[in-house]
């Protein structure tokens, strides 16, 4: 499996990662070699095998519907890059 520069750029965009043009070939090479490693999975026939998502066969526990969390805005926004009037600020979102 080999990824070309265009595919690398597409994936980088999907993952919202800026990758400089100079770094694209190295990513293409490394990602391709990882996919080659991964391709070893194809040596085994897994038809009919139920996928395993969790190591333990447990089911979801439910919490009672109680508001338990106090307002900690001041603490949380103390580590935010940019806030105003209690809001997190981001560059203008165009809809």
């Amino acid at each position: 499996m080999s990824l070309g520069p265009e595919e690398v750029k597409k994936i980088a965009y999907l993952a919202r990662l800026a990758v400089s043009e100079d770094d694209v070939p190295a990513y293409a090479r490394n990602l391709s070699s990882i996919l080659d490693l991964v391709a070893q999975m194809n040596t085994v026939d897994t038809r009919g095998i139920e996928p395993l998502a969790h190591p333990l066969a447990m089911t979801q526990r439910l919490r009672s519907d109680e508001p338990t969390e106090p307002d900690q805005r001041t603490l949380f926004q103390g580590i935010a890059p940019q806030v105003e009037a209690g809001l997190y600020l981001v560059p203008k979102v165009i809809e």
């Binding site: 105003e84 009037a85 809001l87 997190y88 600020l89 203008k92 979102v93």
Partner: peptide, 11 residues
């Protein structure tokens, strides 16, 4: 989208 110095505020 009210104007916060040209930015968008998130609640």
């Amino acid at each position: 989208h009210e104007d916060f110095s040209g930015m968008t505020g998130i609640d």
